[in-house]
Write a protein that binds this DNA or RNA. Structure first.
Lengths: 339, 339
DNA sequence: ACGGTTGCTGCAAAGGATTGCAGTCGCCAG
DNA sequence: CTGGCGACTGCAATCCTTTGCAGCAACCGT
């Protein structure tokens, strides 16, 4: 039913080859012919059949995006950035959600890989070995994670932690608790290290508090342990955890930031709606998605693995100070904030 | 590089046709042959080339999902449901975000339509005329909206409002304010009508408050007007608006639910994290996505427009009572809640 | 005037899977 | 013994586009 290249060719009085060239290598065809073809294309509303093109070029013009959980606002933002930028290049995006399941992830990725030119893996839960294997057999760009010889975009977690600590230390905090996320998470490790280094630089003390789910519930679970450390400020793995912290602290009657300051990471929409509004390190989420697309497209254009190594984007966080951080409470008053 | 149907055929000692049939119409081929083919497929890790198949069948095996804003948790949830259910049918999902732009929407839909077998349009912003035109030339399922002869899945807004009102009236509220969303929104209209009917049934009074953006900011903007109506309870267009309301009311020192009760609609993740936790009408978001996929697939299998008309899914909301609603304040005490 | 470019266009093959049609074989009924 | 049917399988065309190669004309330099 839709117009084919032959219809266009007939209408323009040329061969299909010429139409094809007029569209994809315009400089190779005479200006007058090109104009006739363009007119015919316009008139017929012709759009090349992607399947037929894909059959011969071996390219689908599609890319895949794999995220652990679409309902998590962080990943939703990344996805938004990805599809916006992909559209600019006339590339379609398949989105797949693994439901935080590392096992399902590799199967899904393998299946998806056949249908796309390349994949963007966002915060993959898979192990390093699986990840390398996947990167071997298909074009991959990682977001929020690094792997040998695989391009990716990451956040400068160290710098982000540096900013948070500088803010907290300036407010007089000398002992700061860290509520970690999943142990297997690349981000947890780097944020923890960054925090540790930053605190060392400022001569402040670090109190690590377990490892928790990167969720609101995780924050609720972590709160009491964070309080028990005696720290006057808490840095959470992400905003969701920080908001959970806030909820539990409120329930216990601990004032934020009066008794305890709380800092998150991500700056999701929810954070400015929290009470008190959350101080956090804003991560450019959509930007990460956009850059991932650029990186992937670059890899596709030049699949030489030598140039691919080293193609890595680093994004920087920005401290957003809201209401959840304040001056450290006077030590002389005692730390027994609980009634 | 990847195995083709010919490789499989050679290994199994049959013709490509037989391989094709063994895979897609198993009952047509001898059991023994089928087993040999299956073994060869297994050994080679063969997967049919979707482009080649699409070329001849005219089907891509892909569907498209168009949402106004992926970063909005409501749509993210729908998207999650869509892609989960689509995967079950081995259908890939293209996701596109229109950035709330009605004009961009129709262009995007037209472009996307060529690459997929059908589209799921979630809360489309486009006008009725455009929508009908699109539905004419491609397979479409609507979510959160109806249109003549186009299948879709909607929420029973009337019933949801009924539940909210019953709850509020039981708490003694007799005058209830409605904070409406965008005027062009199908949901706004139906929720408003539903609320109006429910209040009439209970002999309670309705106070309509303008039309606001369906966002946190919209809620902030609406709060003062809602208070000024003298109502003892407010029903908001959605949870985002309700949370905005909460923020502004808190800033003004108006107690929720002490002075004013607030009810939202949607039950997004944020709602139970709000302070006070938001009473809301939970809409099954992922379910809407799942049903939309089923509907679309049904249309694809039977493109007869006669059967398509009337295929419509209706989902029901569920009242979730949290902390933002309570007994109406004593009228004798006076309504001057502001200090 | 002629060999050689240069610039443009067409021919035809290729890419992988599906499917209508025809062919083969075995078997049963007449 | 033979005609015919049923069950299965293979042949070959087809879907639409891209691209290497060849053809053709005009034009340049000598």
């Amino acid at each position: 039913m839709p117009a084919t290249i032959r219809d266009v060719a007939r209408l323009a009085g040329v061969s299909p080859s010429t139409v094809s060239r007029a569209l994809s290598m315009p400089e190779m065809v005479n200006a007058a012919t090109r104009a006739r073809v363009a007119a015919a294309v316009e008139q017929l509303g012709y759009q090349p059949n992607r399947a037929a093109r894909g059959l011969i070029t071996g390219r689908t013009g599609n890319i895949g995006l794999v995220v652990p959980d679409l309902a998590n606002p962080f990943f939703a933002s990344v996805a938004k950035g990805v599809q916006a930028r992909a559209r600019r290049y006339d590339v379609a995006v398949f989105v797949a959600d693994t439901d935080e399941d590392a096992a399902a992830e590799v199967g899904l990725v393998r299946a998806l890989a056949k249908q796309v030119d390349g994949l963007i893996l966002c915060s993959p839960r898979a192990g390093d070995a699986d990840l390398s294997a996947i990167a071997q057999e298909t074009n991959v760009v990682l977001v929020n994670r690094t792997a040998e010889g695989v391009p990716g975009v990451i956040y400068d977690n160290e710098e982000g932690m540096q900013q948070a600590v500088a803010h907290l230390v300036a407010l007089g905090h000398r002992k700061i608790a860290w509520v970690g996320g999943p142990v297997t998470s690349w981000s947890t490790q780097h944020r923890s290290i960054g925090l540790s280094n930053a605190l060392y630089d400022h001569g402040a003390e670090l109190a690590r508090v377990g490892s928790f789910a990167p969720t609101y519930e995780g924050g609720i679970a972590a709160a009491d342990q964070a309080v028990a450390t005696g720290a006057t400020a808490v840095v959470a793995y992400n905003d969701l955890v920080a908001i959970g912290l806030l909820a539990r602290l409120h329930a216990r009657g601990i004032s934020v930031p009066g008794d305890l300051s709380v800092v998150g990471i991500d700056d999701i929409a929810m954070s400015r709606m929290a009470r008190p509004a959350l101080t956090t390190v804003r991560l450019p989420k959509q930007e990460a998605g956009r850059i991932a697309v650029e990186l992937l497209l670059a890899v596709l254009d030049d699949p030489d693995p030598d140039t691919a190594i080293g193609t890595r984007g680093t994004l920087h966080g920005e401290l957003i100070v809201r209401e959840s951080t304040g001056p450290a409470p006077e030590p002389s008053e005692g730390k027994k904030v609980v009634a």
